Simulated scan of single mutants.
Amino acid sequence: MNTVLASPRFTVSEQNSILNTIGNTPLIHLKQLTARSGIDVFGKLEMANPGGSIKDRTSLSIVEEGIKKGEITPKTTLVESSSGNMAIGLAQVCGYYNIPLVIVVDPKANNHTLKILKAYGVQINTVNKPDKKGGYLGARLNRVKQLLSEIPQSLWTNQYGNRANPHAHYKTMSEITSQLPDVDYVFSATSTCGTLMGCATYIKENNLRTKLIAVDACGSVIFGDAPKERFIPGHGAGLPSQFLNKELVNGVMHISDKECVEGCQKLLKTESILAGGSSGAVVSAFLKRAPSLHKEGKCVLILCDRGERYLDTIYNEAWVTKHLK
């Protein structure tokens, strides 16, 4: 991996731009789910970010932190592994700063996402076989290392280990508490665990009573589940998280791919929100956990992304029947 000294002409933009619309997403009352569960529940609409997902926050934080440190310059090419949303978030930020970007994907990346990346001019590099120990994530990370050795002045943004990832979500939790004071429960999906740990750090440092519930995928190794094939991208992981501190998490729920789809359908039919797979997982986790929650409590579900990218999979009955039934 090579870096060069920062150029004085390459600085973080302070002007009004598309990047200034990242964050400060709406928090809405999910009235139908509230009626169904008996718990006052709200949705943090991260799909309202300009790139369509919570990964916009992560991408902006990582790139602008790299620019400030002088690690990212006009001559830098960025490389990242992504199942979809992080790739789009980076494509947007890199497009604004005119930074070349290479994204490593696997066969589970959906066509809609790939079309968006191509529109941004992103170079797509695909791995076709999973790593024996780390699955497709392990294979993608191996390819990232290979590309760093081949591309001059390249840099790995490393969403899996870059502290700018959880730092971005310190603000996510700050927004939630300003929008809904005295929130009792927050349900957050897991992958890199950046969102989870950013929220956890804010809760701890501000001595909040909020309980943080992690929503992991069945077959994900993050919380020690046995690895197995999964079909819903962006939820769970084949390798342990570098950020996770289990002591800051108040509970974990493992949700199957089928339950992700069921949660997406419930969210669409009850609240008219078309969301992605991890949001469906969070909805299903909340409904399963609701009977044991404090009935006077206030609960927030972090809804990570839009559902349009899953029209050929999660919202396609033939695909669901083939893969999940």
Rank of each mutant, 00 (worst) to 15 (best):
L208M: 12
V282I: 13
H254M: 12
L180W: 00
D40N: 15
Y120L: 04
L114S: 05
E229K: 05
C193T: 15
A275P: 15
K118P: 04
I18N: 03
L27M: 12
V102E: 06
E71M: 14
T73A: 11
A6Y: 06
I213N: 08
E205A: 05
T77S: 02
V41L: 13
E296H: 10
M173K: 07
K44Y: 04
N142I: 09
C264Q: 05
N98V: 06
V221R: 01
A6T: 10
D225E: 04
E296Y: 06
Y185F: 11
S188P: 03
N125K: 09
T126R: 14
G219Q: 05
W319Q: 06
L268T: 04
K246A: 06
L293A: 05
T201K: 14
Y310P: 03
F223H: 02
K258G: 01
E150A: 15
A91N: 02
P100T: 13
A109S: 15
I28E: 02
V79G: 07
V252D: 09
M253A: 09
A318F: 00
G198I: 13
T192A: 06
K31T: 13
V249K: 00
I67V: 10
A285S: 13
T201P: 00
L5V: 13
K69M: 09
S82L: 05
L5R: 09
S149W: 08
V261T: 06
A200P: 00
F286E: 01
H169Y: 15
S284I: 07
A217L: 00
T157Q: 02
K44H: 07
K269M: 13
I22Y: 01
N2F: 14
S53K: 07
Y136Q: 03
C299P: 00
A275H: 12
K204G: 01
T73R: 03
K133L: 12
T58H: 03
F187P: 06
P107L: 09
L33S: 04
A318W: 00
K288S: 12
N165I: 06
L148G: 00
A91G: 04
C299F: 05
D106I: 08
V93H: 08
S13R: 10
E259G: 05
L141G: 03
F243T: 06
N158I: 06
K246F: 02
L301N: 02
A164H: 08
G194V: 09
A217E: 00
G43A: 12
L30F: 11
G198W: 14
I39M: 10
K69C: 03
E65T: 15
R143Q: 10
T126I: 11
I99R: 04
G297H: 09
K288E: 03
E205L: 12
E71Y: 14
I67H: 07
E150D: 11
G51T: 04
N128K: 14
A119V: 12
I54Q: 08
V183P: 14
F286N: 04
V300D: 03
I151E: 00
G263I: 13
E64L: 05
G280R: 08
I273Q: 08
T3S: 09
V249P: 04
L5K: 12
K31H: 08
S178C: 10
K269H: 15
Q15M: 12
G95S: 05
A226E: 12
